[in-house]
Design a protein around this nucleic acid. Sequence first.
RNA 1: CGGGGUGUGGCGCAGUCCGGUAGCGCGCCUGCUUUGGGAGCAGGAGGUCCCGGGUUCGAAUCCCGGCGCCCCGACCA
Length: 495
Amino acid sequence: MVNPEQRSQGRKTVAEAKALTPRAADFSAWYNELVARAELADYSPVRGCMVIRPNGYAIWEQMQRALDQMFKDTGHQNAYFPLFIPQSFLAREAEHVEGFSPETAVVTHAGGKELEEPLVIRPTSETIIYSMYAKWIQSYRDLPVLINQWANVVRWELRTRLFLRTTEFLWQEGHTAHATEAEAEEETVRMLRVYRTFMEEWMAMPVLTGRKTDSERFAGALRTYSCEALMQDNRALQAGTSHNLGQNFARAFEVTFQTAAGGLDHVWNTSWGVSTRLVGALIMTHGDDAGLICPPRLAQYQVVIVPIYRNDDERGTVLDAAQRVRGELSGAGVRVHLDARDGMKPGAKYYEWEGRGAPLRLEIGPRDVAGGTVMLARRTGGKKESLPLAGLASRIHEIMEVMQRDLLETARARREAASIRGATREQFVAHLEAGGGFVYAGFCGSAACEAEIKEQTKATIRVLPDQEFRSPSVPATCMWCGKPTVAEAVWARAY
RNA sequence: CGGGGUGUGGCGCAGUCCGGUAGCGCGCCUGCUUUGGGAGCAGGAGGUCCCGGGUUCGAAUCCCGGCGCCCCGACCA
């Protein structure tokens, strides 16, 4: 017996059978299918954990490379602190322990015995790092301390999504110590700017920067700043944070130093981090219904060469030519891959590399070999074009630069189209109902008002925007309660 | 933890109502023919039907009890 569903399934075209769920139909299904299709990550046997597969890890490695250089350029060194933290350390800073206790994993047994003091698996490393800084810092001459670490952290999350929120994730956490509050603030803002630069110039992802309200502040920080991006489903994603920790941890861990004047003072700390969540941000910023679109600067392979041939003769000459092109591009600093798999039709390779987000594809067949040309296809669309072999590498570099810029501008235009400014309460609610996006409006500064808005609309204040993102004019009253505005705020429903 | 859904080859699903020993699409393997946008034909591999009990001559299917996962709510990079 064949029921109607089965028959219609049997009639599906190949394209239908293999297509991702379109973003417009179900954004979250699209995201999950894309991650699987592009082989970026897979679910692990442990709930909430993920395996980052080579294609996904390659993107993270590119991110790491770029960020690491930026950290070094701003005077930071890398170090490594241990995974295990004595449980009592977390408890030393009141707000911090309250913030993280519910989501820590704790080791109580090891070596076949119960431990005298349980060990927390780091959810973040402030406590272990500042306990060490207490040993290393004696004098103002030892300051500033500018250290970063690349590490894994564990937070026992209830609801997880690959890359966006997993129980264990990879990140970097910078931890600095300074002699004055002003210096710490300067560092906090400097690193926020580094993140913004990275997100715009490498990820081609536009972000708003600004300060978090107290309710969204990092547990234990004086002030938290963040970079906020808007995904294609018009939900906001916190992409990076930078905290001015003040002297909170310095007091808890007695990180003191002798001042030039001979006095004793606590240091001023900062911490800042971005995580593998950025891979999720990249997917949801640029991906389309065909799959991932990776900006050239972060792509594992910027150019993929697909050879086309009909018989062994052609195969020989075409592969020969393809290898020469690969050599030339590679020599010119282009990350290039020749897909020489036999027995797979060119079209199938096109779809596969499009799904994986490769920015550029070169097709080389007998006609191209004869004419001394290659056929170029861009992942971002448009007609294929025939390019002469002469000067190919520099042409490819130009095209990648244009593509990198266009991706950023397209994303920025999309974000702006989904943003409204100077909103009233009615416009705020209507905008969220209509699909969402960023809403700029007047805010009275009251935590109670903020909480009520969150409860009733699910929208949170993403940031109190930095100067350059503020609106030319801001309503004089809070869009929700009508009391006088103390700051402009940007709301959105968020991941 | 509350509400809803779901568990069947690697992936997506049908079969469950009405019990008879498992099927479809994609993927995978071998061979031949193919290759400028997801190849065709032929042959083949692969399943504790989530787990444990029960009912029955017989259970993917019915009953009881667990567990996992997904979605929606309270927390979060």
